[in-house]
Simulated scan of single mutants.
Amino acid sequence: MAGDNRERHTLLDISLAGRRRILEELTQGGREAGVCGPLLLPEEFGGLGEREPGVTFTGIPGIVRREDFHPRPGFIPLGFSSWASGPHGRTRLATFAAPDEVKRSRTPVEVLEACVAEGRELTRTPALRAVAALTATGFERARWGVWGSVGLELATGIRYTHDRSDLDLLLVPDTGPTRALCAAWLRVTEGAEKRFGIRIDAEIRLANGYDVSLKECAQGGVKVLAKGLRDVRLLPVEEFLPS
């Protein structure tokens, strides 16, 4: 499936030929094949971490990202993140994919909905248990999904999360958000934070394509930081939250 999904946090499965091209490009630029290879081409380099049973593995997906300094016309900016975390954190690769190298795209909402449809058991870490609990309650007037380490674990079956992992959520309102809805959503996330002893970073996807922090919206400020695929800007709250 070719495509160019231009939403933040979307996961793109890249073809084997595309990942080989990306690896060659990175190594020619000075990156070590022994570091990049297991992440981009686990089929050939091996080294995958522990995986949950029953999850079909199609490679490590790239994450759609913003490219501020060196855009490449006709290509999709992507980031790849390893499951293993060393002294300096996870291995992260910033690169580009051609649209015809994309086999499948999955938004955070689609990642979670597929997991729920498969009936997967989410009990291994506090972040996953929080997802299971929030799935049971839901969020009023919004679809929601997961990104970050939880999203990558659900998408690949590889154990990206650990006992101290944060939970990153994306809320997609059915209609425009309101202050009352933001307050209700925040109560739900804060209850889960307290119950499972984790930090939850929840973003709201606005109709204009920008993502804003749920906690910032609920604090009653005049402006919030809005993150888009092409820029980041301060957005007046009155533009999307009626009084």
Results as ranks from 00 to 15, higher is better:
117 A>W: 10
63 I>W: 01
22 I>D: 09
173 P>S: 09
72 R>D: 13
75 F>I: 01
148 G>V: 02
11 L>E: 01
69 F>C: 05
128 L>Y: 09
95 T>M: 05
112 L>Q: 08
134 L>A: 09
92 R>E: 07
56 T>R: 15
230 R>C: 05
49 G>D: 08
7 E>C: 06
153 E>M: 02
200 I>F: 04
216 E>S: 05
139 F>D: 08
150 V>M: 08
240 F>I: 01
129 R>H: 07
210 Y>T: 04
116 V>S: 01
161 T>K: 14
5 N>C: 11
21 R>K: 09
101 E>Y: 06
28 Q>A: 15
194 K>A: 14
59 G>R: 03
103 K>T: 07
21 R>Y: 02
119 G>T: 06
202 A>G: 10
11 L>K: 07
233 R>K: 12
76 I>P: 05
139 F>V: 00
198 I>N: 04
83 W>F: 06
59 G>A: 09
98 A>E: 11
224 V>P: 03
58 T>E: 15
163 D>K: 05
138 G>W: 04
48 L>M: 15
36 C>Q: 01
204 I>W: 00
1 M>G: 13
227 K>Y: 04
103 K>C: 08
3 G>Y: 00
148 G>M: 04
204 I>V: 15
238 E>C: 07
132 A>Y: 13
128 L>N: 14
185 W>P: 00
34 G>Y: 10
144 W>C: 00
199 R>K: 15
222 V>H: 11
1 M>H: 11
23 L>D: 00
229 L>D: 02
89 G>R: 14
126 P>M: 07
78 L>F: 06
15 S>I: 12
195 R>S: 04
49 G>Q: 11
198 I>F: 01
174 D>A: 15
161 T>Q: 12
26 L>K: 14
26 L>E: 02
82 S>P: 08
126 P>V: 10
46 G>P: 03
237 V>Q: 03
114 A>R: 14
116 V>Y: 02
190 E>K: 11
101 E>D: 10
86 G>K: 05
243 S>P: 12
42 P>Y: 12
87 P>W: 13
105 S>L: 07
188 V>S: 14
77 P>N: 08
